[in-house]
């Protein structure tokens, strides 16, 4: 890690930045940007951020017992303790990816502990564009993708018959709007909202703003270098050459198109209306223009 950033991140050790997002909203890109900023380069299979919140490996190694012997509610009750212990031994500010919604356990305690949380970077993307990308990620069709995004109790990595044996615990996401609102409405951890579209349109300005909000000073050239190293076509090439371990086994490629506004060619009118009708309020709140269909 570059010394300039190392010392700054070390000063904030014991805290976590939650990189929260609905899937396919720019989380991977943003983590690649952070890796490139702090280290000068990036390998998509060796991201220098700190894993995913739902990791069973981290849970098991701290808990001393097999997380697979717990059900989903039981796991949730332990997750805050696990992360509080984990950060005691971290040497710097950590950046952890999250696809879970901001949820409470059955005792009404948040699963993301306030005292170890530095900030939430909430990455959001126009849900109309998420649909096709999410369908590709889950190796499903547009209609099923819409059904998941519109379901108030949607999960990621859920297994049939309540099984809980994957490397990641099942992640309750709610609907697309439910996910967004759970994070941006909670009052325990400060949130910085990052729109994918702003990252595409004005990457330098947007990325700089977010890093500054974390209390991290940057050099202009480092920001430019990170943006250059993580251009969509470069990440796509890396995936083609070496694969991408975060890709869902069933999907063809993780880095698909990365376009903003591409939904117009991929969704029919009825499909677009299903998304708009369900998420109009949240889309408006996030300044997404509601198209006239």
């Amino acid at each position: 890690m570059k010394n300039f950033y190392k010392s700054q991140l070390e000063q904030q050790k014991g805290k976590i930045v939650w990189m929260a997002s609905y899937p396919k909203s720019g989380n991977t890109w943003f983590r690649a940007l952070l890796s490139a900023l702090f280290y000068g380069d990036v390998d998509i299979n060796k991201m220098k951020t700190d894993g995913i919140f739902s990791s069973r490996y981290l849970f098991d190694s701290i808990a001393d017992f097999d997380g697979r012997l717990f059900d989903e509610e039981e796991i949730r009750e332990q997750q805050a303790s696990i992360y509080s212990h984990h950060v005691k031994f971290s040497q710097r500010l950590e950046f952890t990816k999250v696809h879970d919604a901001y949820i409470l356990d059955r005792n009404n305690k948040p699963i993301f502990p306030k005292d170890i949380s530095h900030k939430v970077i909430y990455l959001v993307r126009n849900p109309l564009d998420v649909v096709a990308s999410f369908a590709n990620h889950m190796n499903t069709d547009i209609d099923r993708s819409i059904k998941t995004m519109n379901s108030d109790m949607a999960y990621l990595a859920a297994q049939k018959n309540g099984l809980n044996i994957n490397n990641q615990f099942p992640q309750l996401m709610y609907s697309w709007s439910g996910h967004v609102n759970s994070w941006i409405n909670q009052k325990n951890i400060p949130v910085e909202i990052v729109r994918y579209e702003d990252m595409k349109r004005a990457p330098h300005k947007t990325f700089s703003r977010v890093i500054k909000s974390l209390g991290i000073k940057t050099k202009r050239t480092d920001i430019s270098n990170a943006i250059d190293k993580t251009q969509f076509d470069k990440m796509q090439k890396m995936e083609k050459k070496k694969g991408f371990k975060e890709k869902n086994a069933a999907s063809k490629a993780f880095f698909r198109k990365g376009k903003s506004g591409g939904w117009i060619d991929e969704l029919n009118k009825e499909q677009a209306l299903q998304i708009i009708n369900k998420h109009r309020k949240t889309m408006t709140k996030l300044n997404y223009k509601i198209p006239k269909l």
């Binding site: 701290i62 808990a63 001393d64 017992f65 039981e74 332990q78 696990i82 212990h85």
Partner: peptide
């Protein structure tokens, strides 16, 4: 650790609930 305490010759584990 959150659910365990370990020493040279003892080990304590609490599996919540």
């Amino acid at each position: 650790k959150p659910f365990s305490v370990i020493s040279k010759d003892s080990y304590f584990l609490e599996v919540p609930k």
